[in-house]
Design a protein around this nucleic acid. Structure first.
Lengths: 194, 194
DNA sequence: GAATTGTCGACCAAATCATTCGAAGGCATT
DNA sequence: AATGCCTTCGAATGATTTGGTCGACAATTC
């Protein structure tokens, strides 16, 4: 029992990347296992089911996002101040959401279907948070690509753009718009401010 | 027989967007049909098979890319000139590739698996072209998001960055890097030049 | 009003999927 | 070297999904 918790985390991170690109349904256990260079059955030693992994991913991502926002926002000045408290209120409400998580969880969903499910049952606060989490998933990928000087800049500019997606008018969230939605945040943060 | 060719094109475009995000294998006929608001069986009136659609998509994308490059490159000046002929040479060689297309086509592939298959059988010319095609698929999505003033700018800056992905060192093309690869071009074109 | 063109629901065989299970490798303690 | 525990995994399985078919039936053209 050397590093069971560490391996769990590795699975969460790796699976999270796949989930965030392909969604829950299209992500296979084989794929997750292969990405981890691990036998598929071995994963079941650390998690009970695919849904179990997904839940862990969402919870984990929420936490990473919160931390990232907390520190990043401190490095930014005045005109963002209002947004700052705004985002924090939403952060708090995530705890509430995560309790309902199991109840709303059902098959056939991926990130965006998940949002649609919640949209009907819960208020806009939770919705915004979940959206943030998903955007974060995309941003994380981006941050891995560019080198650190870009990263710093991207974090700040993206944060500046966050207000927009938060208040986004409901867009058609069909398949062909999913990558678009993600890239939109990206663009808004980076292109807009220059 | 009013608009058979038009509907074929609609299928190609719509399916192309899904293919470029999820890859060949993960894209289902039901999904394509749903995106087109069309019965699944109806699609088979226009195409023989899923692979048939995919082939049409690749051919179509190659053509769109060629046209786009042809016009866009004309609007750019001197230091790109060498790249210009370079890209064109590659464009020519695509014809050759498309002839082999059916031969190399087999199950279990998506865009990147496809590239891997080709990597072993053909020279770097064809590889570069295919990569271009795939990047184009991603870029097209991006261009749909931003409005036209950004589009014009994005086309040019992205074109300037094209040399880089063309000569990219071989990166691990596993799942978690796929979106990264796409966004890299994006970033390189847009962030780099400002 | 018949022939042709186009759409679709229902269905199928084959493939894929999440999950289980037992065997066994590794490693410490006795 | 025998015991017991932690960990990994190949193989098997039952359920679901998937690409593709077919016949019925609209719609359009002649």
């Amino acid at each position: 029992m050397i590093n069971k918790e560490e391996i769990r985390k590795k699975i969460i991170v790796s699976a999270g990347q796949i989930f965030s690109h392909y969604g829950f349904k299209k992500t296979t256990m084989d794929e997750i296992a292969k990405a981890l260079k691990m036998g598929k059955s071995s994963i079941y030693y650390y998690f009970e089911s695919k849904e179990d992994i997904f839940e862990a991913v969402v919870l984990y991502e929420a936490n990473v996002l919160r931390n990232e926002l907390t520190t990043a926002i401190k490095a930014v000045e005045s005109p963002i101040e209002k947004m700052r408290s705004y985002v924090f209120v939403r952060m708090k409400s995530f705890e509430k959401l995560s309790n309902y998580y199991n109840a709303i969880f059902d098959k056939n969903l991926d990130h965006f279907d998940f949002i649609e499910t919640i949209r009907e049952k819960y208020d806009r606060e939770e919705l915004a948070i979940l959206r943030l989490i998903i955007y974060h998933g995309a941003r994380k990928k981006v941050f891995n690509v560019v080198n650190s000087e870009y990263t710093a800049m991207a974090v700040q500019t993206t944060l500046k753009g966050l207000e927009v997606p938060l208040f986004w008018k409901k867009k058609e969230m069909n398949i062909e718009n999913r990558l678009n939605a993600i890239l939109d945040v990206l663009f808004y943060g980076i292109v807009k401010n220059k």
